[in-house]
Simulated assay, not measured.
Amino acid sequence: MPLFFFGFWQRVSKHQILFLTGLIVLIMIVSATLFSQTQHVSWLIGLYWAVTTVTTVGYGDVTPHNTVGRWIAMGTMLTAIPLAGAAFAGWAAAIVSIQLRKVWGMTMNKIHNHLVILGYSPLLIHILPDLLSEHPQAVIVSPLSSSELPDNLPCITGDPTHPHILAKASLPMAQQIVVVGESDGAVLMTAIEAHRIAPKTPIFAITQSRQAAQTLKDLGMTHSVASQDLLGHTLAKSLATPHAADFFVALLTSPDLALEEISVQQNWVGQRLDELELALSSTILAVIRQQQVILPLRHPVIEADDTILLLRPPAPGLSPAAS
C-alpha cells in the first residue's frame, strides 16, 4: 500500500491536487448558495448540507424538500464526491511519499556540474581513482552498498535503470555521465534510460562488445567505446611494438601534457591542419568530423563543424596566436 501511494504521488502533480481541492471548494460554495435559495434556509445551513453531502457523511437532518433541491443534490453528488475522493487520495499520497523519502534517503540535495557514474563492473574499481581525480564532484548510482565503494564518493544504492533512483542523481544538471555494467544488456538499458532523462548531457558508455557500442552510437550516444577494442588494440600494438602500451600510459598520465578537445573557430575554417597546428603552438592529434576520427597524416582542411583533439602543456584557454 505505501508503494501504491508513492507511485500515485509521482504520477499526480501537486498542481493537479491543488486544482482538484479548489474545484471541490467552488462546487460546495455554489451548491450551498443554490440550496439555501431554493430551500429557503440560511447560507450557513446550505454550506453545512453541502459539506455533509460531499464528504458522504449525510446526517439527514437537512434534506431537499422539492424537485429543484433534489436536482441540486444529484448534481453535487455526481461532481464533487468523485473529485473529493481523488483529492483525499492525493493528499494522503503526498504525506506518505514525504515519509517514504525520509526513510529511503531520497532527500538528497541537488548538485550541479558533477560527474554521474551509473552501474558497476570490476573495471569500475580500477578506473575510479582516475575519474575522481578529474572530477572531484561525483556521484555513483550502483546496486552495491556504499561500503564497497570509496568513502569519499557519494553513493545512491539502487537499480541504475529505475527512473526514481536516477532522479536522485540530478542527471540533467550533470556535466557528464559514465555508464558501466557487468553485461552489455545492463549498459544498454542504463544508457538509454539516462539519455531519455537527460538528452543534453554527454553520456560515455563503456561496453564489452563493439556491437553494443555501435548500437548506442546509432541511438545518439556517440561517446561509447568497447573495452575489448581498447584492450585488444593496445595488446596487439604492444606485441608488435613492446613500448607502445608504456607510451599510451605516459601520454595519458603525464602532468606536463594535456589532451583537450576544442571546437573550431570561424577564422580557422579553410586552413590546413599543419597551418593551424603552428598557430595553436600545439600538437594536433586528430580531427573529429561527423563522429569520425581523422588522423592528421594528409593535413586535411578544417571545416566549420570540426572538433580538434590537441596535445599541449596544460594551460587555461587558447594561446594568443589562435584567438
Rank of each mutant, 00 (worst) to 15 (best):
V96P: 07
D61H: 12
H15R: 15
V180I: 08
T234F: 07
K168R: 15
S281G: 13
R312K: 11
Q265F: 04
D246V: 01
L235N: 08
W91S: 00
Q99M: 09
N109Q: 14
V51L: 15
M106A: 14
A167W: 01
I72N: 07
L259C: 04
G85Y: 11
E148D: 12
V62E: 03
I98N: 06
A86W: 10
Q99C: 01
P150E: 08
S121H: 03
K237F: 14
P202A: 07
L285K: 01
V249S: 11
Q290R: 14
T56K: 15
A322L: 04
Q208W: 04
R11F: 14
L47Q: 04
E148L: 15
H195N: 15
L83P: 06
I95Q: 10
P136A: 00
T38A: 04
L216T: 00
D305G: 10
E277Q: 15
K102A: 12
P172R: 00
H15T: 11
G232C: 09
Y48C: 06
I177N: 05
T215R: 07
T161D: 02
L124M: 10
T215H: 06
D130N: 12
A169M: 07
V287T: 05
A89P: 03
H112F: 07
L188G: 02
L149Y: 04
A240K: 12
T79H: 00
R312W: 00
I192T: 14
G185T: 11
M74W: 12
L144C: 02
L34E: 10
A226F: 01
A169C: 10
S183Q: 12
P300M: 08
H164A: 15
V139K: 03
A174K: 04
H40K: 10
P136W: 05
Q16A: 10
L166R: 02
V249T: 14
Y59F: 15
L259F: 13
F247C: 07
D274G: 04
F204T: 14
K168P: 03
K14R: 13
L295E: 13
G46F: 03
L23K: 07
A226E: 01
I192A: 13
W43G: 02
L318F: 01
F88Q: 08
P199M: 03
W104V: 09
A304M: 11
P136S: 01
L124Q: 06
L118V: 02
A73R: 02
F88R: 11
Q16Y: 11
K102D: 08
S224G: 07
Q176F: 02
G185P: 00
L153F: 06
F8I: 02
S145Y: 11
D218T: 05
L235H: 10
A240L: 10
N267W: 00
G60F: 09
P2W: 08
I192R: 09
D246T: 13
Q176Y: 07
V178G: 04
A244P: 03
W43Y: 13
T53C: 08
P199Q: 01
S319Y: 03
K217L: 00
A212P: 03
A92R: 06
E261W: 00
H299N: 15
L276I: 10
H243A: 12
D130K: 14
T207A: 06
W49P: 03
Q291R: 14
E277I: 06
P316A: 08
T161I: 05
I284H: 03
D274K: 10
I284G: 08
K237G: 08
A92Y: 08
